[in-house]
Every structure is written in C-alpha cells, then in structure tokens.
Amino acid sequence: MRIQQKPALLVALLIILAALGVWYATKPAKAKLTTSTAIPVRVVSVAEKDVPRFVSGIGSVLSLHSVVVRPQIDGILTKIMVKEGQLVKKDDLLATIDGRSIRASLDQARAQLGESQAQLQVALVNLKRYKILSVDDGVSKQTYDQQQALVNQLKATAQGNQASIDAAQVQLSYTQIRSPVTGRVGIRTVDEGNFLRMTDAQGLFTVTQIDPIAVEFSLPQQMLPTLQGLISDPQHAQVKAYIGADTDGETGNLLGEGHLTLIDNQINANTGTIRAKAEFNNPGQKLWPGLLVTVKIQTALDKDALVVPPNVVQRGLDQHFVYRLNGDKVETVPVQMVYQDSGQNIIKGVQPGDKLVSDGQSRLKPGSTVQVLTDPPQVVQSEPTP
C-alpha cells in the first residue's frame, strides 16, 4: 500500500512545479521608467553695466562751527533779541548789556582828549614863536628846548587820551552781543535782567552752524591708501549719509550727499582704525549735530562689469562656479569673484547675456535636465463695485 502512494505524491509534486513554472513565465513584466524628470529652476541673464564700489562705516554728525555765546564784560542783560531755535546770520544782534557806565567813561576820555589837544595847540604856537626869536637871541636856547619838550609831552598825553577812547569804544561794543557764525540758536540758559560776568562758563546759549555740516567716521586702517588716493583726487569722492541703515547702507533713509575733505593725521593704535571727515550741504537740515549715521564712500567705478545677483554664484571646494543653461541642460562654469556686496556680484568667466541658474541649484549636477520656471503673473485685485 505504501509503495502505491509514493508514485502518486511524486506526480502531484511534478504537477505543482509545472504550474509554478508556467505562472512565472507568463507573469507581466514591471514597467521601467525610461524618461528622466526635469528639475525646475529659475534663471537670470548676465548683465553688463558700470558698477560703483563702496565702503561703509558708522559716523556722527558734527557742526563745522559751534560757539558758546558768553559776555565779554560784566553787566546786566537788558534784552535778548532772538528766540530759541532761531536761524541767525553772522554779526546779527543777539542780546544787549547795560553800557551806561562805559558810555560815561567814553565821554570822559573824549573830554580829556579835547583838553589835551587845546593845550597842544597853544604849545605849538608858542614853540613856533620861540623858534623865530631864538634866531636873534630873543629867547634863550634853554627856553626853546623846554617848549619843545612841553609840545612832545602834550602830544603823548593826547595819544593816551585817544587810546582811552578806543578802549572805551571796544568795551561799549561788547554791550552788543553779536553772532560769531551763521547757524541756529540753542536753548537759552539766562533770562533778561540777570547780572552777567565774564567768568560765567555756562554762557547765554550756543549758536551752531547747520549748513554746511560735517560727518566724522572711522574706517579700518587698511583703507588708508584708498582714502589717500580719494583725498588727492581733484574730483572729490562722493560720500552718502543714511539713517537706519546697516553697514552695507542698502536700507534706511538717505539724508545727504557730500564729499571727503579730511583724513586724520594718525591711526588709532587701540582700534586699528583711522578717522576721516566729509562735508555736506544741508539745506533741508536733515543732518543734525550729534546724529549717528551710516556713511558710504564710492571708492572706484568698474566699467562694463558683468553683474549677477549674489544667489547665482556657488562656492565649491577650490573655487566659485555657476550653473549655465545650455539648451535644456546645465553645465558648471568656474568664475572669479571681482567684487561683491549684499545686492550684486561682479564676476569673470562668463559672457554678457548668458543664462545662469539663480534658484534650484541644490538638486543640480553637470548635465542635469532642467525646466525653466517663469514668475507667475501678478493678480490684480479689483475693487468691489458699490
């Protein structure tokens, strides 16, 4: 019985194996992807234009002339002729001091001069008479010499009286306090009726020149040769002043444009920086003394430079490179960085008009197939009709 079951099991096993072989031979083959997927990218064209180079720093606005107005004589402040914050011109009358005692001294000096001049006139007449008489021995030589000495004495007295008059006139001029510069009046510290002294350190107020005005700033000592070249250039280097800007000066409000006027005579050994100064015309008074600003100085101008956005240039292990569009594929092109800032890069190694990848570089390699994306059209929202 067992001998008859073995052939039956062997036949069943052969049938199962045959069925598996037929199924494996006739099963459908897996579909293979024969087409590669294009990588979406954005591209920009290499532009050719003149590009100015800039260096930036932090500076403070300074007045070219700021004067503390103080009295030059002791006396009572009788009147203030200007208001706080008022614009004044040079030699404008600002205030007056009581000068009655000085006028009295001036009148006295003038009277003494008149008396001396009258005495001198009589002495000159007598001297002339004695000179004639001395020829015929009408008067002695001693009398003539004494009269000559009297004339000289009276002349010296008259000169002294004139000097007293001049001194009194100078003192009287000090009773009128005039503006030494053109500028803006500051906050007043003394009111009318106060007794002023020359030793008062506080003064009446300040007069500060606003237009033109200066900006003092510091730059790294490595910039010294560049600054020296700019200061010696007959066409002064352009300097721009911003407020609320970073060190690149790309943001913030432009307050004014001036020119470089001065480089300090020494470098700060502690900070390794050198101070410089620029002068600005300030008719709108946007630059104010004490204001902190960001300055940008144009140091050079690159003619016909090849310019691309900063995100176009990639950094490799040994050099910079870009992805250039070649048909529907990309190729890597090594480039040289000439100049860079936050807004643009100047490069060498490409041609004007070349299409370079500006977005999507992370998935690229040489020879990759790409699909150039275009910016979607802007949707204009129309106002609802009433």
Rank of each mutant, 00 (worst) to 15 (best):
R2D: 12
Q4I: 12
P7C: 04
A8D: 04
A8G: 03
L10H: 11
L14M: 12
G21P: 04
V22Y: 15
V22L: 14
W23I: 15
I39Y: 06
V46A: 00
V51G: 07
P52L: 03
V55G: 01
V55T: 12
G57E: 06
G59F: 04
S60I: 11
L64C: 02
S66N: 13
P71V: 00
L77M: 02
E84M: 03
K90T: 11
R100P: 02
Q117D: 14
L124R: 15
K128I: 07
Y130A: 07
I132N: 09
L133I: 08
L133N: 10
V135T: 14
S140T: 13
Y144E: 13
D145E: 13
Q146G: 07
N152P: 01
L154P: 00
N161F: 09
A163G: 09
D166P: 02
Q169V: 04
I187R: 07
T189F: 02
T189Y: 03
V190D: 02
D191R: 03
G193T: 01
D200R: 00
A201W: 10
Q202S: 01
G203D: 03
T206V: 06
P212D: 08
P212N: 07
A214R: 08
F217L: 05
L219M: 10
P225L: 02
I231M: 06
Y242W: 12
D246W: 01
D248S: 14
G252A: 10
L255V: 10
G258W: 01
L260I: 08
Q266G: 11
I267M: 03
A278I: 04
K286I: 02
W288Q: 15
L292E: 11
T299G: 05
V308M: 01
Q314I: 04
Q314F: 06
D318C: 08
Q319W: 01
D328P: 04
V338N: 02
D341C: 01
G343W: 10
D359E: 13
R363W: 05
T374C: 06
Q381P: 00
E383G: 02
